[in-house]
Every structure is written in structure tokens, then in C-alpha cells.
């Protein structure tokens, strides 16, 4: 590509460019940081303080908002549902993806190429495209089982929700893990096999520890996906046991009707803070993992 090149004063220009760059980057960083910080501060305001200028600091620590959110709006209960669903989902996805990725990377078998292509195609199917048929399928199963389980089993079941989460992140997880397993030399397994280790032992005792970085990446990305999802949780848990995100969505709707800002902001903080803490702890890992995946759902 040709661009217009004019002679420049080389000593002068980079300096001006540098200042401009700093200004630009700082502006963007502020555009991201200010709204988040504003929410944190606003969660401490009393009802009256929300009228007037939005730039005032809270007058005191009005923690009643948090009590309202945790107890009255039941965010505390939703918090535990979210933790449960996320953890279960992670357990499920690792339990099925690691062995599958390992054999795809290491064994020759009929249909391997086909399975790989199918999983790759699965990367292009976003969960939100297929949430309606999943819901209808589960409703159908419940109807078929109505004699055995009149209360229904599949809808409103956090375990089923985490199973759906796990299933829909299988393509991504296997894709990442397979690539990593392939990059590990076979010499480890050969040595272990000579020592008489079984196939299962080789997979769990030898390969899994070596593949830890990839496993951690899978955990991180799936954690964020499960914790932050609300469409599937909204659809599959229509009853009382909601997840945190759906609870927050309800708070938003309630706020629109009643102008109860304090509770909403406190609810937002409850949702944001755990993720921010985790992110601060593992950000290097996350960003490294991201460049290895390159795929965003």
C-alpha cells in the first residue's frame, strides 16, 4: 500500500504524536473506568441523592442499599445459584472435553476427521441461536415424564442448566485442548507406557498436568461465559431459583417502574465485584489465553 510520504522533521513529530497517543489512550481508559467507578459510588447513595447532578459524591456510606439488594431482592440467594451452576458447568465441561480432546489429538480412529470438522462447525453455532429449540426439547421431555415426575425435572433445574452450558462450550474447549495436546511431544507418553502405565493413567497422570495452561484457559473462558450468561438462564430457570444475572435484570425492570436506583446499583456491584477481583488476580493468564484462542463466542 502506497501512502503519501512527505519529508518530516524527525525529532519533532514523534514527540507530538506521543502526547496525542497518551491523551487518546487516557481518554479511552477513562471512558471505560468512569462509568464503572460511578456505579460503585452511586451504590452508596441515598434515594434523594440520585436527583440533581450525577457527579456528586455520596454523602455517606448508605449500606442499606446492599441489605435491600441481598435480602429483599434476594440477590444473596441468586448468588448461590450462580456459583452452583457455574461450578457444575465447569466440572461437566472438563470431565467430557479433556478425554475427548486427548483421544482426538493422539489416537487414530475411524471418523476422527469427521468429528473434528463437526466440532469446528460447532464453533459457529452460538447458543443464543438455538436456545428456543433447547427449551422446547426440555419441555417435551418434561411432558413425556409427567407420570413419573409430575413436578417436571428438566426445566427449572440448575443441574440441567449447567449441563446445557457445558454442552454448548464443548466445541471451543475441545478445539483449544486438542491444539495444546498436539503440541506436546509423544516422548512422555512413550516413557510412561514403557513403565506400564495404563491408557487412562497416561491421560490423567502424565498429559493432564502438562496441559495445565490450556486447561486453565478453558476454565477461565468458560467461567466468564457461564457466570455472565443470562439468556439461557432466563429461559431454562423461569421459576424462583434465578441466577444473579437474571436477578439483576429483574432489578432493572423494577427500577424503571419505581425509580429505586439504590437497590439496582447495589445489585450491580454485587454482580461486578467478584468478576473484577478474579480478573485482577488472573488478568495476565486471561490475556495470554485469549491470544491462543482468538475466538470469541
Amino acid at each position: 500500500m502506497t501512502t503519501i510520504t512527505t519529508p518530516r522533521n524527525r525529532g519533532d513529530r514523534p514527540k507530538a504524536g506521543r502526547v496525542l497517543t497518551y491523551l487518546l489512550v487516557i481518554a479511552i481508559a477513562l471512558a471505560i473506568a468512569v462509568p464503572v467507578a460511578w456505579v460503585l459510588l452511586a451504590s452508596l447513595k441515598q434515594k434523594g441523592e440520585f436527583y440533581g447532578s450525577p457527579w456528586t459524591l455520596p454523602e455517606g456510606l448508605h449500606l442499606q442499599n446492599y441489605i435491600d439488594a441481598f435480602v429483599t431482592a434476594r440477590m444473596g440467594q441468586y448468588f448461590f445459584t450462580s456459583v452452583l451452576v457455574t461450578l457444575l458447568g465447569l466440572v461437566f465441561v472438563l470431565a467430557v472435553s479433556v478425554p475427548a480432546a486427548y483421544v482426538i489429538a493422539r489416537y487414530e480412529f475411524r471418523g476422527r476427521a469427521f468429528i473434528e470438522v463437526a466440532l469446528l462447525a460447532g464453533l459457529f453455532v452460538n447458543v443464543n441461536y438455538i436456545v428456543v429449540p433447547i427449551f422446547l426439547m426440555l419441555v417435551g421431555w418434561d411432558r413425556a415424564l409427567v407420570d413419573v415426575l409430575p413436578g417436571g425435572f428438566f426445566i427449572d433445574n440448575p443441574g440441567v442448566l449447567s449441563l446445557v452450558y457445558a454442552a454448548t462450550s464443548i466445541p471451543f474447549s475441545i478445539y483449544l485442548l486438542t491444539a495444546y495436546f498436539r503440541s506436546i511431544p509423544t516422548s512422555y507418553e512413550e516413557a510412561a507406557a514403557l513403565d506400564g502405565a495404563s491408557r487412562f493413567q497416561i491421560m490423567t497422570r502424565v498429559m493432564l498436568p502438562i496441559a495445565r495452561p490450556a486447561v486453565v484457559t478453558v476454565i477461565l473462558f468458560n467461567f466468564l461465559a457461564y457466570w455472565n450468561d443470562f439468556i439461557i438462564a432466563l429461559t431454562l430457570l423461569p421459576g424462583e431459583g434465578k441466577t444473579l444475572q437474571v436477578g439483576l435484570l429483574n432489578l432493572m425492570t423494577a427500577q424503571k417502574a419505581a425509580a429505586d436506583y439504590g437497590r439496582l446499583y447495589a445489585g450491580m456491584v454485587i454482580v461486578i465485584v467478584p468478576v473484577l477481583i478474579l480478573y485482577a488476580l488472573i488478568q495476565r493468564r486471561l490475556i495470554e489465553g485469549m491470544s491462543s484462542g482468538g475466538v470469541k463466542g
Binding site: F92, A95, V96, S97, P99, A100, Y102, V103, I104, I115, A118, L119, G122, V125, I130, I134, L163, V164, A166, A167, T168, I170, P171, I174, M203
Partner: peptide
């Protein structure tokens, strides 16, 4: 090793 992953993948995707 493959079956659980494939069953879930087929069933829910």
C-alpha cells in the same frame, strides 16, 4: 473418552 462429549454435543447442539 469420546462418547460423553459427543452425546452432549449432539443432544444440545
Amino acid at each position: 473418552c469420546l462418547l460423553p462429549a459427543l452425546v452432549l454435543f449432539v443432544l444440545f447442539m
